[in-house]
Structures are given as structure tokens and as C-alpha cells.
């Protein structure tokens, strides 16, 4: 088991390195850097000025070197600028170059500086992630039990009316992306048009003080889209299990229907949805970005949009590494959980 987990973690680290390198490369393409220079300096900067700005700040080093420095495995640059000033990557906030550390990358906990928020990227990500964590917690709480119950109810009696109506509901919810359901929910429950103004159409207030009124709509919006998908998976898995020979064995052993579902079918039927739930995270992240933008909830997804649309390179890199890490961790959990749930796979 240990070697299996180690191997998985190895693959995960490799994936993370590849992904961050890609992000790093894309954000450090010359047009992006040029734009950065112009936003930092002024928009009428000459090409020469742009080059010297970039050169002075270490942006013109070879890509692998920059990546190594950002990661913290190569020593941070110390460059004598064209303006005569010495600049070092690790000397921030007026620190003397001599005092600065040699390495200052992600590995040393240095996430860089956000040009939009004028703040340390690491601390921005931490606070925003906390807010999104709160959102996700409630989303999972609504989505997972809801999806599993719908799926199991639909799947245990294939072709019945319950099955057909629940399946239609799940199809409808998978067909409704967050930006559609969000708009509909806000229109119906957030405005007075239909006489059902029960909730707030924005969740800004929920950042400090979340309550049912201001937090339910965003949670529901994210949960619904994922819910249909998981419910359909559960249903498929459940119907397959219910037609399995061993369910017939149980039935012909005289086991009552409720017991067949609970004792014989459920565990086998939940193996597949479990992995799906875990692999849903990349999609949930999408939902988070959309919903936080739509409801103006300034969490992690909102930060991503701000960083990306304002060319805030270091913040965007930080956001990317966190989301990649979240996705990979859930994949790891999914793999390990699958092994635990499925007794057919045992470690030799």
C-alpha cells in the first residue's frame, strides 16, 4: 500500500511540476510581460523602456531559470539594472540585497507580490481560499447526499415512475450550467418580478456573515450542476448492481427489498460515484469561479478572474498552483478511496 501511495504521489508531483511549468510559460510569454511592464510603468512606454524594465526585474532570463527561481530551487536573481540600481528577487520591501535570502520561491513560502491588490500573493490566496472553503463545504453538504439519494432512489427500481421523474430532474440539472441557473435563480428569487423575493441576489454580505438568505442561492447554484451528474452516475451504477446475479441470489434467499438495497446493493453501487465525486473537483472549481463572479462573492474564484483579467502574473501563478494542487489531491484521494471501497482490489 505504501509503495502504491508513494508512486501516486510521485506521479502527482510530476504532474504538478508539468502543469505549473505550463502556466509559468504561458504567463511569461513576451506579450504578457510587455503588458505587465506597461501597467507597472505607463501605457506609452517605448519598446526600449519596456525591455529595460523587464531586464531589470529579471523577466528576460531564460525560462527554465526563471521557473527554477520561482519554484525556489535556483537562487533568486541579483541584477545590476540599466539604471544602475541593484535589484534582487529576494529583496522585497526595501530590504538590503546583502540581507536577502538566496532562495525565495514557492518552496520557501514566497508566493510573490500581487500587482492588483498591492499585497503579498500568499496572504491573499489564504484569505480567499478560506472564503471559498466555506462555500464549498456547504456545496458538498447539499450536493453529495442529495445526489446519492436521488441516484439510489432512481436506480433501485429501474423504469418506475420515480426513476423516470428523478432521471429527468438529473438530466435537467446537468443541462443547466451555473451561469444559467444562477441567472434564473436571481431573477426568480432575488428580484420582485415573480413575487418570490425570498433570497438575496448577491452574496457579498455572506463573506463576513453567511446566513440562509444570502448564501443559499450561490450554494444551490453550484450544487445543482454537479448534483445531476453524480446522481446519474449513481443511478447507472445502482441499476447495474440491481440486475446483478448476486442481487437475485439475495432475493431468492428471501431477503426483503429494503435490506437488499441497504445491505447488498448500496456498497457495490457507491464505488463508482465516489470516484466521480472526487473527480468532480475541477468542474466544481469552474462553478466556483462563475458563481463567485455572478454573486459577487470575493473568494478564490473571484480572485482568479481578477488576477487573470488584470495580468497579475504572480497572483495568477499562485492561484494556478493552488487549484492544480486541489485537483491532484482529490484525484489521489479518489484512487486510494477506490482501493479501500472495492474489496476486489487488494494489495499483494
Amino acid at each position: 500500500m505504501v509503495s502504491f501511495i508513494l508512486r501516486r504521489i510521485g506521479i502527482m508531483v510530476l504532474t504538478a511540476l508539468c502543469l505549473t511549468f505550463i502556466v509559468f510559460w504561458l504567463t511569461n510569454l513576451f506579450p504578457n510581460l510587455e503588458k505587465l511592464a506597461k501597467t507597472q510603468g505607463n501605457f506609452r512606454m517605448s519598446d526600449d523602456a519596456v525591455l529595460s524594465y523587464l531586464g531589470n526585474n529579471g523577466y528576460l532570463q531564460p525560462l527554465p531559470v526563471k521557473y527554477g527561481q520561482w519554484l525556489g530551487v535556483l537562487p533568486g536573481y541579483v541584477i545590476a539594472g540599466t539604471d544602475g540600481q541593484m535589484r534582487a528577487r529576494c529583496a522585497t520591501g526595501g530590504q538590503d540585497i546583502v540581507d536577502a535570502a538566496r532562495f525565495c520561491g514557492i518552496l520557501q513560502g514566497n508566493w510573490g507580490y500581487s500587482t492588483v491588490f498591492r499585497e503579498d500573493a500568499g496572504s491573499i490566496i489564504a484569505t480567499r481560499l478560506g472564503l471559498t472553503g466555506k462555500l464549498m463545504f456547504w456545496v458538498m453538504l447539499v450536493m453529495v447526499p442529495g445526489a446519492l439519494i436521488i441516484g439510489v432512489m432512481a436506480g433501485m427500481n429501474e423504469g418506475s415512475r420515480t426513476d423516470r421523474s428523478l432521471s429527468t430532474v438529473s438530466i435537467l440539472s446537468t443541462a443547466t450550467p451555473e451561469y444559467v441557473s444562477g441567472v434564473v435563480f436571481i431573477s426568480v428569487f432575488g428580484t420582485a418580478t415573480f413575487g418570490m423575493q425570498w433570497f438575496k441576489g448577491t452574496a457579498t454580505a455572506a463573506m463576513d456573515d453567511a446566513n440562509f438568505e444570502n448564501f443559499f442561492l450561490p450554494v444551490l447554484t453550484i450544487a445543482l450542476y454537479g448534483m445531476g451528474y453524480i446522481a446519474r452516475m449513481t443511478r447507472a451504477s445502482m441499476t447495474e448492481v440491481m440486475t446483478a446475479q448476486y442481487i437475485r441470489t439475495a432475493r431468492l434467499k428471501g431477503v426483503a427489498f429494503s435490506q437488499i438495497v441497504l445491505r447488498h446493493a448500496l456498497r457495490n453501487a457507491l464505488i463508482a460515484p465516489f470516484t466521480v465525486i472526487m473527480l468532480q473537483f475541477p468542474f466544481l472549481l469552474n462553478g466556483v469561479v462563475i458563481v463567485e463572479t455572478l454573486f459577487n462573492y470575493k473568494g478564490f474564484g473571484w480572485t482568479l478572474v481578477q488576477a487573470a483579467s488584470n495580468n497579475d502574473i504572480e497572483l495568477l501563478l499562485g492561484v494556478s498552483i493552488v487549484s492544480v494542487f486541489v485537483v491532484l489531491t482529490t484525484q489521489l484521494i479518489s484512487d486510494i478511496g477506490y482501493v479501500f471501497l472495492n474489496p476486489r482490489i487488494r494489495i499483494a
Binding site: L19, V23, E34, K35, G301, L304, V319, S323, V327, L328
Partner: peptide
């Protein structure tokens, strides 16, 4: 394939679909 799938789609779009790219 897993590498691309591990990318949150929106991040990928924000990185790829810009005038600079």
C-alpha cells in the same frame, strides 16, 4: 491527457484565450 484534464477549464481559458496569446 490527465495533465490537461487536471487543469481547471476556466484557468486554461484565461491563459489561452487572451489577445496576448
Amino acid at each position: 491527457a490527465n495533465l490537461i484534464l487536471a487543469f481547471p477549464v476556466i484557468l486554461l481559458f484565461y491563459l489561452l484565450v487572451t489577445p496576448e496569446i
